[in-house]
Design a protein around this nucleic acid. Structure first.
Length: 459
RNA sequence: GCGCCGGUGCCCGAGCGGACCAAGGGAACGGCCUGCAAAGCCGUAAAGCCGCGGGUUCAAAUCCCGCCCGGCGCUCCA
């Protein structure tokens, strides 16, 4: 027992998180297919599992976090063809962009970041076992899993086979070679000019779903604890992954976690709709945006659709600055205390234990921040402890604080203006001081006069 | 159509049977502080009742039923 509860998509209810091995949590989160700019939706997803991981660690659990990179699929092949270069070139380029963007969002590196192309041998092996189990068959176009042979195939989506078939027949082009329209490809036979790998069924490439089964089970082992991803993956991706594991009788994820989508103007951000914003674009727009976006993600429960727009980003930036302001205050006054405020930590933990209640966790953090400021104002002895607590809670959520002290060469000009303004103030030449402050404001710099002297920060 | 998740203040967003019937953030207003600011603090802003209509209960934003509206999935997708 961890005391932590999480919603489980499979059972449809909030259940206690019970790791297969006490004190350890094996987490597999589905990562992106790398062929284009990562968008804000990818960021929300990565942030969700980063926060989950950080919180589990904050509670003393030993987490093994795996997040894959899909570096071979139709989209990559098409992109490579369009640009006249290799699939590998495309994947390597966009994987680097993705990894860099995540780092800028303060997303911790997963312990393992397996690439699909490096696991093809294991995938072929896995497909072979499914064949051995009699749950798959070959056609001219590849190897297919016989969905009807898997008991409880649609359990994750809470739908029956007939129900699923009704939709499939209407929506998906029916492949005459398949026994059942729901059957899906485990292995795709090679087409001309496409990358391929050898297999007992001829050269080809792996189907999408097989990679995650091979990698999650391969790295984390049977019966690993949490499998996460965007809720758009529930079907068919996760449903099919699960079917593959079930087909060979291997215990799969104990707990299924899915984050909701991110909306722009009320509708899902997606490639096909062309209404997406890239992470890099958002990050480049304002130095505070990385943390502001994380805060926005935290302030909406992970299972609820969240909206992003410029106004919300601006308000989140303001909120982030309150954290920095506290850090500046404490660094200019008392040193941070060591002991955390127990009441606040308890409130925080109980909020987070309840299906990762980050909105309330954030509320506790800000509430503590407020109490810290008030204590600082009246010089109360609990001030250092409260300050340390607020900053620690922020840290548990992955929100770093920036005390905003200058230092780079670009700042020397600012430093000089600040010094000149201070000199004017000491001479009580208010007009000159105010003019200098305006100059600084034009540079996007805000000066604050404190008992310990002026400090400044970028707006 | 079927499945899942929702509809709470000016905006975002918690709360999911009773502790102050509504946390926290943003925006707004008044005061303190300041040379003036900024930051911070103190306080305020009629949520006519938490989408609508019924019901259950001593008690509902919170449970049940129906309806309306929104998002996502059923197609590559985080």
């Amino acid at each position: 027992m961890t005391g932590i509860e999480l919603y489980d998509t499979l059972t449809g209810e909030i259940r206690p998180l019970e790791p297969r091995e006490p004190g350890k949590v094996a987490l597999y989160a589905c990562g992106p297919t790398v062929y284009d700019h990562p968008h804000l939706g990818h960021a929300r997803s990565a942030l969700t599992y980063d926060v989950l991981r950080r919180y589990l660690e904050w509670r003393g659990l030993d987490v093994r976090h795996v997040a894959n990179i899909t570096d071979i699929d139709d989209n990559i092949i098409n992109r490579a063809r369009d640009e006249g270069r290799t699939e590998s070139d495309v994947a390597v380029e966009w994987e680097a962009v993705y990894v860099d963007a995540m780092a800028r969002l303060d997303v911790l590196d997963p312990h393992d970041r397996p690439r699909a192309t490096e696991w093809v041998t294991e995938m072929v092996d896995f497909v072979g076992r499914i064949m051995d189990a009699g749950a798959a068959y070959t056609t001219g176009t590849g190897v297919y899993l016989r969905v009807g042979s898997v008991h409880g195939y649609g359990d994750l989506v809470h739908r029956g086979l007939d129900d699923l078939r009704a939709s499939a027949g209407a929506r998906v082009e029916v492949d005459e070679d398949k026994e059942d329209p729901l059957d899906f490809a485990l292995w795709k036979a090679a087409k001309p000019d496409e990358p391929s790998w050898p297999s007992p069924w001829g050269p080809g490439r792996p189907g999408w779903h097989i990679e995650c089964v091979a990698m999650s089970l391969g790295i984390l082992g049977d019966d690993f604890d949490i499998h996460g991803g965007g809720n758009d993956l529930v079907f068919p991706h996760h449903t099919n992954e699960r079917a593959e594991a079930l087909a060979v009788g291997r215990p799969f994820a104990r707990h299924w976690v899915h984050n909701a989508m991110l909306n722009i103007e009320g509708t899902k951000m997606s490639k096909s709709l062309g209404n997406y914003r890239t992470v890099v674009e958002m990050l480049d727009e304002h130095p505070l945006n990385g943390r502001a976006f994380r805060l926005l993600v935290l302030q909406t429960h992970y299972r609820k659709a969240m909206e992003v727009n410029p106004e919300l980003m601006a308000s989140a930036r303001s909120a982030v600055q309150r954290l920095d302001a506290l850090a500046r205050r404490s660094s200019t006054s008392a040193a941070a205390g060591d002991d955390l405020d127990e009441t606040a930590v308890k409130a925080f933990n109980s909020a987070m234990d309840d299906d990762l209640g980050t909105p309330q966790g954030v509320a506790v953090m800000f509430d503590t921040l407020h109490r810290a400021n008030a204590a600082l104002d009246r010089g109360a002895e609990e001030a250092p402890s409260l300050t340390a607590t607020a900053i620690s809670l922020a840290g548990a959520l992955g929100l770093s604080v920036d005390e905003g002290d200058g230092g780079t060469d670009a700042d020397s000009a600012v430093e000089e203006l600040v010094a000149r303004r201070q000199a004017a103030r000491e001479a009580k030449d208010w007009a000159a001081a105010d003019a200098l402050r305006d100059e600084l404001a034009a540079l996007g710099v805000v000066v604050e006069d404190t008992p310990a002297g002026p400090i400044w920060r970028r707006q």
